[in-house]
Write a protein that binds this DNA or RNA. Structure first.
Lengths: 226, 226
DNA sequence: GTCTATAGGCTGATAGAC
DNA sequence: GTCTATCAGCCTATAGAC
């Protein structure tokens, strides 16, 4: 934990309020006046610090991605493949826990036909965190720890997708898990983060005995949903 | 494949146009006039068939979920656990391929603090497709095919999260995979669907030799990203 | 069933005082 | 740096002719 941040400038207050509101309601539905009200400052002040509503949005997005990259890169450096992947997923979970609204904010941008502001942030992720995760998987494959027949980028997507989806669709996940409250508890989120790392590592693990685990079942049932 | 649908009524044209536009731009940014224009009918006609913009949205959502439930339930019925899970994922992939915009539409609703229209649809999914997937996993655990230490609901979420995330974040995935065009090819999507089923089944598979696969690495690196 | 025309409300952004 | 006041533009939804 970094030391408690100083007074908190109006600029930061605006960024914090915007992060929450944009994530909860989306860009279009969130109004300038709402942000000003939530930040406790006048809404016109927004135009003193940011060129327009869009730039405020970009700034919020960038703050989150920068922290995600820093934490995942930091946590997964210099470890062996298995420990590195565990640390990577843990860092992903921790960053999300600190910015619970950010994944939703991010995904809102990603689903756009024109992912405008997000495209630069995704590019950054692609050459840092995502590349690191792929490298860890490939290293494990070379070392004989992981099965060699899996595509490293695909496996990396499957790995990050778990926590990403969990936090994005959190209200829905609560319903799927049969929770009553409209939120998943922090403890459940932690449990799922551990599960996600286990799940990915189990999926990657080299089979100790690659014998006839299934003899005739490989080709069938593959396209049964036509 | 059902036989080619007849002429396509104005109502259906509106629904189709709305599905695409809502998914691409979101609810708020999509205007009544855009939908009318895209559907090739007058925008005021929308109020003849639907009470308001919101009801049109609910209708689009319901159409997709109903088809997803039908296909996944149909495909995964009566199979053994492994074949059932493969069929389930294949049905998920096929439904998405037929409604490429729908997952984005759906997730837009899910990320809202108040998932309004989606909550009923998620409830429906929870007691049908999701429950089926959990049952398949538990059945495999009882039969000794799958590791007994995994949580079935968590594993089910991890399973569906892969394709869900892939199709939701499609523009970002294209960047992560280093594709030039701003879309992932249909072939790549098919490859990923196969990978997703393999990944999930490998993660679930019972270890033939549960010996010392890792001796001292369990506890460490778990919280390294503080 | 499909259209034209328009009312009425809300929003992003600016001007300018302090 | 922070505020008040305000406007021009766009959007949903309705009325009503055909």
């Amino acid at each position: 934990m970094a030391s408690a941040p100083p007074p908190a400038s109006s600029r930061d207050l605006l960024l914090d309020a915007a992060e929450r509101l944009f994530a909860e309601q989306g860009f279009a539905r969130t109004t300038i006046k709402q942000i000003g009200r939530a930040a406790g400052v006048n809404s016109a002040l927004l135009y003193y610090y940011f060129a327009d509503k869009r730039e405020l949005y970009r700034e919020v997005l960038h703050r989150f991605v920068a922290r995600l990259v820093a934490r995942t890169m930091d946590a997964s450096a210099g470890d062996d493949p298995e420990a590195g992947i565990r640390a990577f997923v843990a860092a992903q979970a921790d960053t999300i826990a600190l910015h619970p609204h950010a994944p939703r904010l991010f995904v809102r941008e990603l689903v756009d036909a024109d992912p405008g502001a997000a495209v630069d942030q995704v590019r950054l992720l692609a050459v840092t965190s995502f590349r690191r995760l792929c490298a860890l998987i490939e290293e494990g494959q070379r070392a004989g720890l992981f099965r060699p027949d899996a595509s490293a980028p695909f496996a990396a997507i499957s790995t990050i997708a778990q926590l990403a989806y969990f936090s994005i669709a959190r209200p829905a996940v609560a319903l799927l898990l049969g929770k009553q409250r409209d939120g998943v508890s922090a403890a459940t989120a932690r449990d799922f983060a551990r599960h996600a790392a286990d799940f990915a590592l189990a999926a990657l693990a080299a089979r100790p005995a690659p014998r006839a685990r299934r003899s005739a079942g490989r080709a069938r049932a593959h396209r049964s949903a036509r």
